Simulated assay, not measured.
Amino acid sequence: MSAGEDSGLLDGADKVANIVIATCTFFFSIYIYYKTFKRDETKDAENKRLELFKTLILEHNLSHFYAFFDNIISHSNVLLTRVLTPQEKMAINDNYLDELHNFRMRFYDMIMAIDADLYSSIKNESDNLVDELTAHLSSSTLSLHLPSVYQHNIITTVSRYRTSILKKMYEFK
């Protein structure tokens, strides 16, 4: 081959290489654009969901959250006055169930629109709270009229579940 043919061959190879590089750059740019767009779109959706949670639940209904736990304790305070009859304990348990119903209607039912997993978690925790308090009320071995027993079995239980639900809401993303 002569020097002219080598030069023509190199020029042709150079042009093909430039076309391949330009094509790869073009497709890589499109790929990066769509990946960035999808990531931003996902972040926007997460931000909207978090903002909805913050606005709908925390700003407007957090008072119902605290009221639920305060009302449970208020209904329980009668336990400190004397040893109650089974009928009186059933009345307290009915109050717990009414409070649970109100809590569901006023607070965590709205969470279903935002996140089903968080809803289920809060529902389970609040149901478990009432179940545990019912078990304490039904226990013939607990003397709930004694302040230390009341503190351990009622106040501590309510505080533990309140903290657990708050933690779940705080960790929501």
Rank of each mutant, 00 (worst) to 15 (best):
K48F: 07
H60K: 15
I32T: 07
L56K: 15
I57Y: 08
E51D: 02
A13T: 04
L58R: 13
N61H: 15
Y33P: 00
S29V: 05
I21G: 01
A13L: 15
I21E: 07
E51Y: 13
Y31N: 02
T42C: 03
N47M: 10
Y66V: 06
A13F: 11
F65N: 11
S29F: 02
T42F: 10
A17C: 04
I21F: 05
F65E: 09
N61V: 04
S63I: 10
D44N: 13
D44C: 01
H64G: 05
T55E: 13
H60A: 07
S63E: 09
V20P: 00
L62V: 08
I19Y: 02
S29I: 08
V20E: 04
L58T: 15
T25Q: 04
K15E: 11
F53C: 05
F65S: 11
Y34K: 10
N18S: 03
A13P: 01
T25C: 06
G12I: 04
V16D: 07
G12P: 01
V20I: 13
I19N: 07
T25E: 03
L62S: 15
S63F: 11
Y33N: 00
L58P: 01
N47W: 09
T36P: 00
E51V: 05
T25Y: 00
A67S: 14
S29P: 01
D44G: 03
K15M: 06
I19A: 14
S63K: 14
F28T: 07
H64T: 10
E51T: 12
Y31L: 12
N18E: 06
K54D: 05
I30L: 14
F28K: 00
T23S: 02
T36V: 05
K54Q: 14
G12V: 04
A22Y: 05
E46V: 03
N47Y: 11
I32L: 14
Y33S: 01
F37L: 13
E46D: 05
L56I: 13
Y66G: 03
L56F: 08
Y66R: 05
K43D: 02
F53W: 07
T25A: 11
F37V: 09
L52Q: 12
G12R: 15
K43W: 03
D40M: 04
F53I: 09
H64A: 12
K15G: 02
F65P: 07
K48V: 05
G12S: 15
K48M: 07
I32M: 08
H60E: 14
F26K: 08
F37C: 03
K54A: 06
Y66K: 06
L52E: 12
E46Y: 05
L56W: 10
I30T: 04
N18Y: 00
F65I: 05
F26D: 03
T42L: 14
T55K: 10
I21V: 12
Y34G: 01
K15F: 03
F27L: 12
N61T: 11
K43A: 07
Y66L: 06
A67Y: 02
I19Q: 10
L58Y: 15
L50S: 08
E41W: 04
F65M: 12
A22E: 12
T25S: 13
I57E: 08
K15Q: 07
Y34E: 08
C24T: 10
A17K: 09
Y33F: 14
F53P: 05
K38T: 10
K54N: 13
T23P: 00
F27S: 03
K54R: 14
L58C: 13
L52Y: 13
C24V: 12
I21P: 01
T55L: 07
I19R: 08
N47I: 13
V16I: 14
K48G: 00
